[in-house]
Design a protein around this nucleic acid. Structure first.
Lengths: 327, 327
DNA sequence: GGTTTTTATGAAATGCATTTCAATACAAAG
DNA sequence: CTTTGTATTGAAATGCATTTCATAAAAACC
């Protein structure tokens, strides 16, 4: 930078101002410096900048790849969320640090934050680690979480109205006069538990309804398929309605049940979740609960910006919608 | 760091050595320093470290979200690749910078590299920007690309054997005595063009075969659906074999064609690409070409490490496989 | 014309960890 | 009891840009 300054016949601070877009330089000085910088092939060192400015200009996005890999049930959904976040961060000129290692303990979070590796965190899906996130929030580390929204929680969460999603599914079942419902999903996951509760709520409107639960252990596609198949073979009464925690899971159920001659929509109603593109084109096309993916990423980033500014952003819930199709 | 040094009664370099895991400190000094650091809540500043070490310890992963968003045809495939890369980088303690902005021009690459924002680049899918990547490679910027493998190319590419994929599809069509093939995909994309060439190659084995092409403009699911539907309505002879560039596209085709009463496997054979989980459970289940996602991410990272070490890694091609199902 | 305000620029201090080189202490070898 | 080698440790130099504060110059105001 000294060199550029010398050649352009200005001082170092001026070069710095030009290169970081400060408005405190005259137009022609700017021109001159820019020209010299370009011709000398000079690029300022980002780390020196970050060191001096005492901020990373980067956000860590935490993602549990484990549960989305290799045939695991990770609807393209999370990917879309990620795309939205990436874009929103880009606009604000912030780097996106994807799933840095070590974030499975509170110390990992604190260390990354303190060492200025990231200015804030966006966690995608609280999954089964709510306790950890509560701790992080209590350390006053800027963070927003995509997932279940709980007002009692110490952190700011943005998520779909999972309970509404469950209710919508239940109401559809009632409309079709279904009475023996099956819920497919792991209630370990806060989000999924809320969907279950919504379903229960809808069930209360009719005293005849019974809900059974097929608790999912492995997220692998074929595992769900097999579990569903085994369930159907051993259950006393076959379900006439199924609410699956994802469209992909719904597809697995359709396959597993059809092998036993149990067909949708003839024998049972089925509602999935996420409204992934193939859901509309599956045979039969899958009725599902749609989340507002588009807005979600941008909203998460916006909330995080508020947190970075020192305020405590409020959690927000995005509406969910029933998309009616064949099943 | 000075404080920690003082309290632990050692010098700054010693603290540095302890904290960065150098073996040049005695065991009890290490203990002592570590204890003080912990109790003082000290974390070293990553940017100071990166500044001094003159490397970012970060890899930029470039991803064209645009073509994978909002119902666009981005099979979970890319996501799995990303997961693999993330893991491989984690192991090597490298940060993953996801799709930093500005990488649509050569200057963007050079700037990010020179300013030490990233030590290297992994580009996922060369798409229609091969020319840009060639330029990047010629600037001696460490980079590996997932996509079409071309020995004449200036950069190291890792990809599936797309041409083989095409051939496998063609051979299956021949086996089923299909003669009027339809290729669905955009040949602007190098990878997809190679698949087409493989298909052509197979076609040459039988002089009766004719290949038509449905060139895809928009990657949106419904756009493909509509294009396929329009095609079927206007074509003179209906295809009896379809090779689609992705499983999701294949699903779109199945839907579009079935509306016109053109059914698979009865009226035409269909081969998709990527073997995404739902492909196996779709009705009918989709015959497809599988790529080795698992290995891919790790291999990309490995090659990039070689490039960082100054050597010029050789491109590599992963085998593809035909997964036979109903269609 | 003199004074106040604004605009443009520079000197020096600051953010923080690593590395080279030299020095010391200690053990092993002769 | 030297000599040589090894293991630890420290002083000082280095990597690089930003910011505060001050100054000079130019513009605006009375």
């Amino acid at each position: 930078m000294d060199d550029v300054a010398r050649i352009a016949k200005v001082s170092k601070p001026t070069v710095s101002r030009v290169l970081s877009g400060s408005p405190l330089v005259s137009a022609d000085t700017r021109e001159r410096v820019l020209a010299v910088a370009r011709e000398q092939g000079y690029a300022l060192n980002r780390h020196a900048q970050k060191l001096r400015r005492e901020r990373a200009n980067a956000i860590a996005v935490v993602l549990d790849f484990g549960s989305h890999r290799q045939g695991a049930i990770g609807d393209p959904f999370i990917f879309e969320l990620l795309a939205g976040i990436s874009e929103a961060l880009s606009v604000r000129d912030l780097d996106l640090l994807l799933s840095p290692s070590g974030l499975d303990t509170i110390d990992g979070f604190v260390d990354l934050y303190q060492s200025r590796g990231a200015d804030g965190f966006i966690v995608l899906g609280q999954g089964a680690r709510d306790a950890l996130l509560q701790k992080v929030a209590r350390k006053d580390i800027p963070m927003v979480v995509w997932g279940a929204v709980n007002e009692a929680s110490a952190y700011c969460a943005v998520g779909s109205d999972n309970s509404l999603g469950g209710r919508l599914a239940g109401e559809r079942f009632l409309l079709h006069d279904r009475r023996r419902w099956l819920f497919v999903g792991s209630r370990q996951h806060e989000e999924i538990r809320l969907r279950f509760e919504g379903l229960q709520e809808a069930a209360r409107k009719n005293s005849d309804v019974e809900i059974d639960v097929l608790s999912i252990e492995s997220m692998a596609f074929s595992a769900i398929h097999d579990q569903a198949n085994a369930y159907l073979k051993t259950c006393t009464v076959r379900p006439d309605a199924v609410f699956a925690f994802s469209d992909t899971a719904a597809m697995a159920v359709i396959g597993a049940f059809s092998k036993e001659g149990h067909l949708t929509p003839r024998d049972y109603s089925l509602v999935g979740y996420n409204d992934i593109p193939p859901a509309a084109h599956f045979t039969p096309s899958i009725t599902t609960i749609a989340q507002q993916t588009g807005v979600a990423g941008a909203l998460l980033v916006e909330k995080l910006m508020q947190a970075l500014d020192g305020s405590r952003p409020r959690s927000a819930m995005l509406p969910t919608q029933l998309v009616t199709r064949q099943t």
